Computed example of a mutant assay.
Amino acid sequence: MKKPIFLCSICNISSGSCAEDCGFCTQSAHHNADIERYKYKAIEQIVHEAKCASSNGALGFCLVTSGLGLDDKKLAFVCEAARAVKRELPQLLLIACNGTASVEQLKALKEAGVNAYNHNLESSKEFYSNICTTHSWEGRYQTCLNVKEVGLFLFTGGIVGLGESEADRASLLQSICELSPATVPLNFYISNPALPLKATPLSEAEALDIIKEFRAKLPKESVLMIAGGREQTFSPHCDIFAAGADSIIIGDYLTTKGEAPMRDRAMIEHLGYTVATLCQHVTPA
């Protein structure tokens, strides 16, 4: 029997106007990308999106904010959103993705009902200065350590196709393995006319090989989640799960449209897999 596929959805609860200069990100104010910008999404809308995600089979729901990290006001808002979602959907694996975070801030999120924290390393330590100059890779790694210290499930991964070398990918993968995360989001870079970072897109064959390499070297218990860039990188019925993926993001991404959830579910079934249910999914410690 083929493995069940874990579905996750993300919710951009604070969009755009980020002061950081990440060359891959349309939310950076440095790049003036044509995206929707808002300070905070209405709590009622966040809960509505969580309910929709759950009805589409998502077991995980991620509250994402733009910006370097948490301050007191943003932390209070994320906690308010988390409590509201958990009141309506207590069974949902609630993930926060709010940039760099201290131990105390992460403890507050955990008390509000957050189960996991997503903070991607993005690239190798050696390559990072090529894609961002306003904060350090080391700060990202420290946040991941803080997540582990607090006892939240750690989600951390990166982006490939940024122009990095194979050695850079190997270094990123080694750093991820050191952290032994519960879930590893793997993104494939898609260029935008507003972004300064230009790179040749990976072919489907190259991307599949990267999935295979990650799955072979990651801890067996880590869930490998294919996230941004999936729809542009892979043909509709390419079997990324046979290559080693355990999970996908369904619905829209932060500033780009995703595939319709029902079409993704049809794709999963066409390939002979099932969608993971609550009783089947056990998040690794």
Rank of each mutant, 00 (worst) to 15 (best):
L7R: 01
S17I: 02
C22M: 00
G23T: 08
G23D: 00
F24C: 13
C25R: 05
A29I: 02
A29N: 07
H30K: 07
N32S: 11
D34F: 00
I35H: 11
E36D: 04
Y38Q: 05
K41Y: 06
K41P: 11
A42K: 07
E44T: 14
I46D: 10
H48I: 03
H48W: 10
A50C: 02
A53M: 10
N56H: 12
G60Y: 04
C62D: 09
T65G: 12
S66V: 09
G67Y: 01
L68T: 05
K73D: 09
L75K: 06
V78K: 13
V78P: 14
R83V: 12
K86Q: 11
K86N: 12
E88M: 11
Q91R: 02
N98F: 01
V103S: 11
L106S: 08
E111K: 07
G113T: 05
G113C: 03
V114I: 15
K125H: 13
K125Q: 14
E126W: 06
E126P: 04
T133W: 01
T133V: 03
G139S: 10
G139N: 12
G139L: 04
Y141K: 13
Q142C: 03
N146A: 14
K148G: 04
E149I: 00
V150W: 08
G151W: 02
L154A: 10
L154D: 13
L154K: 10
F155L: 01
T156V: 06
T156I: 10
G157A: 03
G158V: 05
G158H: 10
G161P: 15
E166R: 14
D168R: 00
R169D: 02
R169G: 08
Q174P: 01
I176F: 01
I176H: 01
E178I: 04
V184Y: 07
N192Q: 09
P196D: 02
R215S: 08
P219N: 01
P219A: 00
K220N: 04
G229W: 05
G229H: 08
G229C: 06
R230K: 13
E231A: 08
T233W: 04
F234I: 12
F234K: 14
H237L: 14
A242N: 10
A242E: 15
A245L: 13
S247W: 06
I248T: 10
I249L: 14
G251E: 06
G251W: 01
Y253S: 08
T256G: 03
G258K: 06
E259Y: 01
M262L: 09
R263G: 07
D264G: 06
M267N: 13
M267V: 14
M267L: 12
H270G: 07
L271E: 14
T274N: 03
V275R: 13
A276L: 13
A276V: 13
T277A: 04
L278K: 09
H281D: 05
V282T: 09
P284H: 04
